[in-house]
């Protein structure tokens, strides 16, 4: 008897809980769909879509190489260079941040590492394009602002990943360095770094893949790379130009992803 009563009450509770969540989700969706103030879609939408697709099918092949430093190959190379230098800078900055944010003992609260984590979370959330605009104020429009924006923004993610790999290392080798009479620097050089550097390199490559994507859009705010000519082509409705740039981005990013993935496998 007791058992069946308990069973029933648990069932009722379970059912109310499901109802509660279901209702909550419905409310959220009603709010989301009816709350949003959809303006009218512009009447030319159909025609523009067609034009964009036509542009991709008939891309402006002349733009690929013109030898004037303004062509697709040049701006794509510039995009890659921005992502590359930005990643190197951020990897370098991330190392001390990672040691700051890494917990020394598992499941142990520490003010030091928590503060490091918060700083990294804020950096990660600070929008990249706002950083780019801030750096444009300082160094003027162009690739350098893009490099700096990526270099700073990526620290948020790389610092976190690096910190996690520091936390994951085996404490044993460090202990053995102490036991032979080594000091803290010896421990870092002979035990910690050999364990974390492969992971650092692998995460940096991964971040490079993401940074290449970011670098393609930083130009839209004036921070160098393919984004500037792309936005210009969209605004002047040169859809053939847009088409070739899209193709260029898709091919470049695909190749970079593939190469980087292969390199990361070598490291692993």
């Amino acid at each position: 008897m007791m058992g069946s009563i308990q069973h029933r009450s648990a069932g009722v509770w379970h059912r109310t809980r499901s109802w509660f969540w279901g209702l909550l989700i419905v409310i959220v969706y009603v709010w989301g769909i009816f709350g949003i103030n959809f303006s009218k879609i512009q009447s030319s939408a159909g025609a523009v879509t067609k034009a964009v697709l036509m542009g991709i099918i008939h891309p402006d092949w002349h733009y690929v190489y013109q030898g004037n430093g303004e062509d697709l190959v040049s701006v794509m190379l510039q995009t890659l260079a921005i992502a590359f230098v930005g990643t190197i800078i951020s990897a370098r900055i991330s190392i001390p941040f990672a040691f700051w944010a890494a917990k020394r003992r598992r499941h142990h609260f520490s003010v030091l590492s928590t503060s490091g984590r918060i700083v990294l979370a804020v950096v990660r959330t600070f929008p990249e394009i706002v950083l780019a605009i801030m750096f444009i104020k300082a160094v003027g429009p162009g690739a350098f602002a893009g490099v700096l924006a990526l270099g700073v923004h990526s620290v948020g993610m790389l610092g976190k990943l690096f910190a996690e790999s520091i936390e994951a290392i085996d404490a044993g080798p460090g202990e053995s360095i102490l036991s032979v009479g080594g000091n803290a620097v010896n421990g870092l050089v002979f035990a910690t770094l050999p364990q974390v550097l492969p992971a650092f390199a692998s995460y940096s490559l991964y971040r490079f893949e993401i940074s290449v994507r970011s670098a393609t859009i930083l130009g839209m705010v004036g921070a160098g790379g393919v984004g500037t000519p792309l936005l210009f082509a969209i605004q002047t409705r040169s859809w053939n130009r847009v088409g070739i740039i899209l193709i260029g981005i898709i091919i470049t990013v695909t190749i970079i992803d593939y190469l980087s993935g292969w390199l990361r496998k070598q490291l692993g």
Partner: peptide, 18 residues
């Protein structure tokens, strides 16, 4: 391979601002 802001620029051109 296409980043978010790039798609946004395209769709703004197609359906308009908003």
């Amino acid at each position: 391979t296409l980043p978010d802001l790039l798609l946004a620029a395209l769709f703004v051109a197609i359906v308009g601002i908003g």
